[in-house]
């Protein structure tokens, strides 16, 4: 187990380094830099040179990258070029907001998806399955911003039940945030439920056709017990990974939805920082996203190993 963990952590480190290089290169490749973005039409001549000199932008890219990487290794993310503040201070509250939105959506969406998926799988090709599968297919095919816009149109504009956009300071308290995020949460839950549901349904159908479920039935085990004791523990294993991916997706700033609802999370921040050519900020956020993906997937994989008796014994060496 420890061996796997170490191996995975080492490979995570390489992934992060790779992401850092790619993000830096992409940001460099964008036309313009922080100074042209900041100065706008005035960006020329001496003014531009001064600005660049003050931000060290006149140095060659490779040199800047080495500097940045060295600081990063020491835990220093650097300063935002535009806001002239340490990046931690900018990212911190934004990340908290994203976590709040993601957590609420996950708490609603994941259990809902699993329950509906199991239900559809067990009653495959019956009416509940048709309804559930149909709606989930719809949710998967319609882009999330369309759903978001529809929800805004119906519930914010026609009925005026919920606010259309969140107009909140970045450091608002949870109590203030919650009533404001009903629509984004519904949108997120809708989209993620569809994905998890499809995977759950497929793996439940597989398990329902397995020899061991047939055997349990022929052992005289009542249907509900067959489902809960024999089928579900194996059927839900594959869903762990897709749930992990969904959580990573939620935490790494659901950019489009945050933008539509103007939610002060990481997603809106990264868009803004790209507009500003605020390179250190973009890099920091991108690295964070990568870190979240790696961490969540690692946790999911370890969980699968722990829950699957077959893998568990391969790792710890119980029997053959």
């Amino acid at each position: 187990m420890l061996k796997i963990l170490v191996r995975r952590l080492v490979s995570a480190l390489f992934t992060l380094a790779f992401v850092a290089v790619v993000v830096f290169a992409v940001a460099e490749a964008l036309p313009g830099d922080a100074c042209t973005a900041y100065l706008g039409r005035l960006a020329q001549g001496e003014r531009l040179d001064n600005c660049r000199a003050s931000l060290d932008l006149d140095q060659p890219a490779a040199k800047r990258f080495v500097h940045w990487a060295r600081d990063l290794a020491q835990g220093d993310l650097g300063n935002s070029l535009k806001r002239k503040k340490p990046i931690e201070e900018i990212v911190g509250p934004r990340f908290r907001n994203t976590v709040i939105l993601g957590t609420v959506a996950a708490l609603i969406g994941i259990p809902l998806a699993i329950v509906l998926g199991v239900f559809a799988g067990v009653y495959r090709d019956k009416i509940p399955d048709f309804v559930i599968s149909g709606v989930s297919l719809l949710a998967m095919t319609i882009p999330e911003f369309v759903i978001a816009t529809l929800l805004i149109f119906v519930f914010a504009i026609s009925f005026q039940w919920f606010p259309a956009v969140t107009i909140l300071p970045t450091d608002a308290g949870i109590r203030e945030i919650l009533p404001n995020i009903v629509l984004p949460v519904i949108t997120l839950a809708f989209v993620m439920t569809a994905h998890i549901l499809r995977i759950t349904r497929a793996s439940v159908i597989d398990a329902m056709h397995s020899e061991y479920v047939k055997m349990a039935t022929l052992k005289g085990v009542p249907f509900r017990r067959v489902v809960f004791r024999h089928m579900l523990p194996s059927a839900l294993l594959p869903t762990i990974n897709i749930v992990a991916l969904t959580i990573a997706w939620l935490l790494s700033g659901v950019v489009v939805i945050e933008k539509v609802f103007n939610y002060p999370g990481l997603g809106t921040l990264i868009i803004q920082s790209i507009f500003d050519r605020d390179l250190p900020l973009v890099q920091a956020i991108a690295l964070m996203f990568a870190l979240i993906y790696i961490a969540v997937n690692l946790i999911a994989d370890l969980l699968v190993i722990l829950l699957n008796p077959k893998l568990r014994s391969q790792v710890s060496g119980e029997g053959g």
Binding site: E211, Y212, K214, M215, P233, P309
Partner: peptide, 8 residues
């Protein structure tokens, strides 16, 4: 092998 429930 396939007829015994793998998780029990």
């Amino acid at each position: 092998g396939q007829s015994l429930t793998p998780t029990m």
